[in-house]
């Protein structure tokens, strides 16, 4: 970690917890993505609020 990052104390426990759940989180994300693909395949529409936010944050 560079010096710029270190002005904020990230907390040893907080870092450890992240590293511990990292694997699960990655799997969760992969499953989530797949699940939304399945939903899209079956033509389930997202609710409008969600759609709007995703439009802002996800589209590239």
């Amino acid at each position: 970690m560079g010096i710029v990052l270190r002005y904020l104390d990230p907390g040893s426990g907080s870092i450890l917890l992240q590293l511990l759940v990292a694997g699960l989180a990655a799997i969760g994300l992969a499953l989530g993505t797949r699940w939304s693909r399945i939903k899209r395949f079956w033509g389930r529409k997202k609710n409008p609020a969600e759609a709007e936010e995703n439009e802002e944050d996800d589209e590239e």
Binding site: L16, Q18, L19, A22, L24, A26, I27, L29, A30
Partner: peptide
């Protein structure tokens, strides 16, 4: 010590954020 040599993939970071 907390980090030792463990790392967190970009995918895992995105997973945490998504969660």
């Amino acid at each position: 010590e907390a980090r030792s040599d463990r790392t967190m993939s970009r995918q895992a970071m995105l997973g945490v954020i998504e969660n």
